[in-house]
Design a protein around this nucleic acid. Structure first.
Length: 489
RNA sequence: GGUCUCGUGGCCGAGCGGUUAGGCAGUGGUCUGCAAAACCAUCUACACCAGUUCGAAUCUGGUCGAGACCUCCA
């Protein structure tokens, strides 16, 4: 299979043919969560987007090292530099150890990832585990003249950097605009210029998370960890860097500056940015109070939710849009996705029961090529899904007897549908219980009894069986060949 | 204010110069003891105004509207 994968590169704003630095290996870094609170659905969308990238790269034969960090220190809270560490602040509020906060929300993050069947990265490094490396990178940057110490803190000298390099290429900004638009928040700052950003911050006496450094007892700046950990695990130059759109500036811009400032190399060939999940057109975020946790989503226990939705329904809902577009949340859209997903899943079950015939009115190769083409075009999952629904139509038509399929095409169709549904899109069958055999036997008996009552035209009994099973989320489907059932979660 | 993005049918969302996107909902059939499911058929579109072109949802200019970033955020 010759795959020409094209990726929308934020750096060039063009769709480019993907060529890894060292075939067949691919290095990919994605900015992970800051573990100071529960992740909400908007966060999930980004990690899901890159789950698809990870899965598809592997699917077409690449060997991927996927690094996704855990930010457990360093994000400042409040205005400018006078804020405090987000995790330390949370620790004070909850009256627990900072690392306890980190552990709690890291665990929570992992269980959410599992809930949505988002695969683990190859390496999940944490910022606090790389303090030494961060100090070393700061020293390099200082040595190269792009950073200065001020009162125990170290700042990146953006103006000086910009004199020999372009600052702002990724986000399409120029330094003059940035200077003229700086807000009046910095006050009595230690920084030489408002654009400068911290590489190391001296800790005030109350600050809980602190480490020794050549400059002060303090903590690393909030953009540094990604530069350090991507370099450590993927090298000074690697293939893909991903993250949410909202990280493009300043976070990713600073990352590039730090890498260039320390080793002279722009680190990433392909920058990929996922777009935001919106609610009534506005970005989902904690401050807007329009976010909800996955638990609330599943139970429906939130003012924005009319009912609960299963994780796979949500996955389907998100993958029906392209990662680069905003996606607007609504109950209506979720409910439509729920039905659509069910239709797909049911067809996959039907597929397993299809019998081949001599002639084939369907040809799988063309459909298969279209599926690959969709994913090769910047991971276009909505197009892929539309093609899978073409497959659904084929499956149901064969089942209905209005189409036929031969052995070869049936094998091909099975492979195609399974691979793209489960491997590429990462859907998973939600209710696979260990006592499935008992249930199967039981249902066979029930359906047989119902069949007899139907033959006797004893409709009250047959309808009672059907209705009561429905209450247990077991749905009976009658057809010419007899009745089938499935259990819906 | 600066930079950028977007405005598609009842809803969600692809497409980005000429072909039915797709899902959900609606309508009419087929099937069924009834229903559900499924199948077949079918109705609603490209914010507005001008321009380029044989041809524009798709390109250009303008108008209006929405959003993101510029401060932590996926």
């Amino acid at each position: 299979m010759q795959n020409q994968l094209f990726i929308q590169n934020s750096l060039t704003r063009k769709k480019e043919l993907f060529k890894p630095i060292s075939e067949p290996n691919v290095g990919m870094y994605v900015c992970g969560p800051t573990v100071y609170s529960d992740v909400h659905l908007g966060n999930v969308r980004t990690f899901l987007s890159f789950d698809i990238v990870f899965r598809y790269l592997k699917f077409i034969g690449y060997k991927v090292r996927y690094v996704r960090n855990i930010t457990d220190v360093g994000h400042l809270v409040g205005d400018g530099d006078e804020g405090e560490d987000k995790i330390a602040k949370k620790a004070k509020l909850d009256n627990i150890e900072p690392m306890e906060v980190v552990q709690k929300y890291t665990n929570g993050f992992h269980s959410v990832m599992r809930l949505f069947n988002i695969q683990d990265p190859s390496i999940e490094p944490s910022a606090t585990g790389h303090i030494m490396e961060q100090i070393e990178m700061i020293q390099e940057i200082i040595k190269n003249g792009f950073a200065y110490e001020s009162n125990g803190s170290v700042y990146f000298d953006v103006k000086k950097y910009n004199a020999t390099h372009d600052y702002g290429t990724l986000s399409g900004r120029n330094i003059e605009d940035l200077i003229s638009n700086t807000r009046e928040l910095d006050g009595q700052s230690e920084k030489r210029d408002s654009l400068d950003f911290a590489l190391w911050k001296k800790a005030d006496p109350h600050h809980l998370m602190r480490w020794n450094s050549p400059w002060s007892v303090g903590f690393p700046g909030w953009h540094l960890e990604c530069s350090v950990m991507s370099t450590k695990y993927l090298g000074e130059k690697f293939d893909i860097h991903g993250g949410g759109m909202d990280l493009k500036f300043p976070h990713h811009e600073c990352e590039i500056a730090q890498n260039v400032g320390s080793n002279g190399k722009s680190p990433v060939n392909y920058w990929i940015h996922g777009n935001m999940l919106t609610v009534n057109g506005k970005k989902m975020s904690k401050s807007e109070d329009n976010g909800f946790t996955p638990e609330e989503l599943v139970t429906g226990n939130h003012k924005l939710l009319e009912k609960g939705y299963s994780p796979m329904t949500v996955r389907f809902f998100m993958l029906q849009s392209h990662y680069g577009s905003t996606l607007d949340f609504s109950n209506e859209a979720l409910q439509a996705a729920e039905k659509g997903y069910k239709k797909l899943v049911n067809a996959l079950k039907t597929l397993k029961k299809l019998k081949p015939s001599e002639n084939s009115s369907v040809h799988v190769t063309e459909l298969k090529n279209k599926c690959y083409a969709a994913m090769n075009d910047d991971f276009n999952t909505p197009i892929l899904i539309s093609h899978l629904f073409e497959g659904v139509k084929i499956i149901n038509s064969i089942h209905d007897g209005s189409a036929s399929i031969n052995d070869e095409n049936l094998i091909g169709l099975n492979k195609l549908m399974d691979e793209f549904t489960y491997d590429v899109l990462g859907f998973t069958t939600e209710s696979s219980s260990s006592d499935g055999n008992v249930l199967d036997g039981l249902m066979e008996l029930v359906i047989d009894l119902r069949k007899q009552s139907r033959e006797d035209k004893n409709w009250s009994v047959s309808d009672k069986i059907r209705d009561q099973l429905a209450q247990l989320n077991i749905k009976i489907n009658d057809s010419k060949e007899g009745s089938t059932w499935n259990h819906e979660e």
